[in-house]
Nucleic acid binder design. Structure first.
Lengths: 215, 215
DNA sequence: TGATGGGTATGAGAAATCTCATATATCATG
DNA sequence: CATGATATATGAGATTTCTCATACCCATCA
């Protein structure tokens, strides 16, 4: 064990190594399937995941993206919720699975962990609030550019159009218009297995738009 | 002391009564002014507050609204942030101020409190994410109607138009168009001290729009 | 095999929203 | 009082986004 440092060390007041197992996921892999009862706590050490939920009408809705480092499944672990949302890897992920059965009590009484979690949740809330406040001001062109960069790290955009349009808060029709625009401009290229990014610089400049500052 | 129950009882593992003071605010009162160093923890027992922050360019930006019951200033109390945002009462508020100087250590090691806070923060995040995801699909007419109901509980809408437009993510121009529309329809009436709500039923039906369900 | 449903795709016109331009009122400040 | 900064207010035309209508492809299922 030539580990320089155990990555969970800072997040707990006791040694969770005996209860932890590292799991790796490739982009696209399902980490948690929706509606499962889940008694484990997850710590995303590396990567990015997508959280989604199925609505009453059967449509799948993308709820949010979460970047490492972050805890997953913490609400269920704390007993504040029964069923998990669906969680899918967007980037290759390194994820620690901490089994609840053997150290649940201990974790729930670990002030180091609880304080860390409070801080991370609070920051997540603030960041999300600010980000969604800002993003809502941009036209779809900019938001879609950012979305593509976020979800297609390997250079090929594969999201389901219906779900993507819903997440971005626009109609399917309009989403397709803008996507077709990107293809016309030579930014994307349609292939049999997705849209290949041909000009990621162009996408970045569209998604940036630092100059756009309303009012 | 004929208190049926001390309202903070459920949120702490020890008796915080000695460290707590109840403060009441009227709608419009400032609870925390922005940029202050703050070492107290607040618990909003009743009411609704507005959180705002001044941007580098000097504009004031409304960040979010928070309903009771909720903790305020928890990130500063946990040491995760230095300066507070501005917090203003929207409804009459009952707020407990818990002085940090005398029981900070104890609170930071109180697992009952920490667990409660984690759960509340997690829920706040999920609710906010879902709400902002949903709301972005509605036209301004609906969002403004809801915003007016939320910020004008006494029947008079007094928000600054520039800030409201920024919060709602639309241009000032368009915001005024829609507001003028509400006046034309007889839903609002312009008075010297704000816009008086004449048809709150109309506002509610505009803000509801349960039938609106894209895709 | 035919039917059904979901994802995909495209067109045309309508509605929502933005940009730019201009004007007045208010308020603090020298 | 004059001045500048900010909020308020309104108009006209451009752009974004929506609604509705219509196809096609491909899976599943009876």
């Amino acid at each position: 064990m030539a580990d320089a440092r155990f990555p969970l060390e800072d997040y707990f007041g006791f040694d969770v190594r005996p209860y932890s197992a590292l799991v790796r996921f490739e982009a696209g892999d399902m980490i948690l399937s929706e509606g499962e009862a889940n008694d484990a706590l997850f710590f995303l050490e590396q990567g990015r995941v997508k959280v989604s939920v199925t609505q009453p009408n059967g449509k799948v809705l993308i709820v949010s993206f979460i970047d490492a480092p972050a805890f997953l499944g913490e609400l269920e672990f704390l007993g504040a919720r029964e069923l998990t949302n669906g969680v899918t890897a967007v980037l290759p992920c390194a994820c620690w699975r901490i089994a609840g059965t053997r150290c649940r009590e201990r974790i729930l009484n670990d002030t180091t962990f609880l304080r860390k979690l409070c801080v991370m949740q609070g920051r997540r809330f603030v960041q999300n609030a600010e980000k969604s406040a800002r993003s809502q001001s941009y036209p779809l062109k900019a938001r879609l550019a950012q979305f593509i960069l976020q979800t297609a790290p390997d250079g090929v955009y594969r999201e389901k159009h219906t779900e993507a349009a819903a997440y971005l808060g626009v109609t399917y029709r309009h989403y397709l218009y803008v996507l077709a625009d990107f293809v016309d401009c030579g930014i994307l290229e349609k292939t049999f297995q997705g849209y290949r990014i041909r000009d990621s610089e162009g996408l970045r400049s569209l998604s940036g738009m630092e100059t756009l500052c309303r009012l």
